[in-house]
């Protein structure tokens, strides 16, 4: 096939880095945008599959930031901003170093935490959002489950019947 299941990421995190102080919560700047793996998976249409979660439900972080939090590749992290909170995988960024910045490819996961404020310019603020990252033990949700949990469009009616 012309694609791979998830981005190939080299594991370069050293947990015993000397100058890194461990923290529980990390203040970061969140950027979202496209990424070749996300684009290929989304437009092929494989959005219900585990593959989409692996390419869009992931926060690409600087290895030093990951060492500070004590997370490795494909561990769950909770990213919170003023607009919401979502559990995504953490992974080593191919564009490192960029300490204090995380990148989540656009998709249902990033949507939960980006700002819908357009400042009357039609365009929501998808980049440069203040957020915090912390370790999480929750599993990253698949697309359909995430949409159900976030929007609850058709689950509400079922609850009313009960």
């Amino acid at each position: 096939m012309t694609y791979i299941d998830k981005p190939s990421i080299s594991n370069v995190i050293k947990f015993d880095e000397l100058n890194v102080a461990k923290v529980d919560q990390l203040k970061v700047m969140l950027n979202t945008g496209t990424d070749i793996y996300q684009g290929a998976c989304k437009k092929r249409g494989s959005t219900l599959k585990d593959e989409y979660r692996k390419v869009a439900g992931v926060a690409y972080m600087d290895p030093k930031d990951m060492a500070k939090l004590g997370v490795g590749n494909w561990d769950s992290v909770l990213v919170k901003s003023d607009w919401g909170a979502v559990v995504v995988y953490s992974a080593h960024s191919r564009d490192a170093p960029h300490e204090g910045m995380i990148f989540i490819p656009k998709g249902p996961w990033a949507n939960v935490i980006v700002s819908n404020e357009t400042y009357c310019c039609s365009d929501p603020t998808y980049k440069g959002i203040e957020a915090t990252v912390e370790k999480s033990d929750k599993e990253v949700l698949l697309m359909a489950d995430l949409m159900k949990e976030v929007y609850q469009k058709y689950t509400k009616k079922v609850k009313e019947v009960d």
């Binding site: 949507n111 976030v150 929007y151």
Partner: peptide, 16 residues
């Protein structure tokens, strides 16, 4: 188009 994948959820909430 795919607003579910590309709109902030604050905006998508109205689609509910």
């Amino acid at each position: 188009a795919d607003p579910g994948a590309h709109f902030p959820s604050g905006a998508n909430m109205h689609l509910v």
